[in-house]
Design a binder for these strands. Structure first.
Lengths: 241, 241
DNA sequence: CGTACAATTGACGAGATTCAATCTTAGTGG
DNA sequence: CCACTAAGATTGAATCTCGTCAATTGTACG
């Protein structure tokens, strides 16, 4: 399987031996470049391979009540359709937000790998556990937070995930999202997202221009968002106590 | 591990050999009875065992922005804290809604079992995949649907999950939830939940009294909710084509 | 330099919240 | 068996957050 970012992520979450890492690296894969808006997998497709995001961003989206709802963003190192190994019918569009690069690995090859290295099964299960925790936090975000803390929470999450794979330092990151994308993810209208972002700017909490987002007052922002990064760390045990 | 409902669920999702089923059944466990409102696991606890819900309902909840947000309901056969095997620090309260019975299985015993029967690792991973799909649907529900379809969708989901374990037939089920519980799950106020339920009653879509919910016009209700049960089935492949 | 798309702004409306009161129901003790 | 109590369900009124509509401005790209 490709790419150091995935290995980085998995190592952050699980302990993998050198041979397991090598087996991952040795997986056959195909690389594909995507442009903004390209759809990787369509809703209804039957999938026979998994996708590893190598660079850029993907989003999972589906039209609900005539509204395009984004239910997940993916950053490099993520495997957005890992679940297709269990449930091959895809029920969302997976699409590139900004240009991106992906690698695809066939289910067949992946299953063989997991048979040979059971610890990898466990490690990938751990990936699913973290993805579930992210969804859970989105549920809370959409269910309980007003617009400002809701947007703040999403930005904190993205910043932390990008940091984990070395794509954000000092709170600065490249983010090719439009305000419409944010609106679709936060369950708000573009108009209201616009006003919310302006408010975040006015309070000097963020700086966002020409696809570069900078979190200016990280502590204050995380306070407003009630953000706690523990759910993104596979091993909070190391961060605690 | 205890209980036929879990086996039923796992069999619905994965193929398990007799010996694997027997190994599951043979796991040592402790049974506990809970009263309404009892907390199984507290936010912040370090968990050393997993919980299998045998009867009744559990809910996962946490206070977000001074609001109690429920991010999941669990029905018999579910393992609400399966993820604690990977991330032992629990970041939500898990509490009994109505009386319930649970069985606890130590992580140690479970890990040993998974070492002996790799197929069970895969099967439990599949459980996590389904739980993630449920979260994803909640994200969409909270992000995109107005109150009426939102409540309808939740009721359809619960009915389907209860059906899977034989606890709902003909759309009738025992449901010990208060309107406040629904409100916490749907991200709405109790007042608005009340009005929404009245509207569902007025349209003769549901009948709900003395803890018994009946879905009267299932097709119509699912249409309003845009509900599709595929995400709850581990093997949509069998339901399709 | 025009075109298309994203961002911004203002005015208005609707869905949902809040507050507060009342009604209903189930459980309790006398 | 019934009054008493507490929790849940219901109702009305006022309010507010956020959505919709529609127009305008800004910006990247050919």
């Amino acid at each position: 399987m490709p790419h150091q970012k995935l290995i980085e992520r998995l190592l952050a979450v699980s302990r993998l031996s050198k041979s397991e890492q090598n087996a991952l690296v040795g997986l056959p894969y195909a690389v594909r470049n995507l442009a903004d808006g390209d759809i990787v997998v369509h809703q209804g497709d039957r999938s026979s391979c998994c996708t590893v995001l190598m660079s850029g961003f993907l989003s999972r989206q589906r039209v609900i009540s005539e509204r395009n709802q984004i239910s997940a963003f993916y950053v490099p190192g993520d495997i957005p359709d890992l679940h297709s190994l269990h449930v091959p019918i895809i029920d969302h569009d997976l699409c590139s937000t900004g240009p991106s690069t992906i690698a695809t690995v066939s289910h067949v090859a992946l299953r063989q790998l997991l048979r040979d290295f059971p610890a990898l099964t466990y490690a990938l299960w751990g990936e699913t556990v973290i993805q579930a925790a992210i969804y859970r936090n989105w549920v809370e975000n959409l269910g309980a937070r007003a617009a400002l803390p809701r947007v703040a929470h999403l930005l904190c999450e993205l910043a932390t995930r990008l940091q984990q794979v070395g794509l954000a330092s000092g709170g600065r990151m490249n983010l090719p999202f439009t305000q419409g994308d944010l609106a679709d993810a936060c369950g708000l209208s573009t108009v209201h997202i616009n006003r919310t972002i302006q408010e975040l700017r006015r309070r000097r909490l963020i700086d966002w221009q020409s696809q570069t987002l900078e979190l200016l007052e990280r502590v204050e922002l995380e306070f407003i968002a009630e953000f706690n990064q523990d759910y993104l760390l596979g091993r909070p045990s190391l961060a605690q106590h």
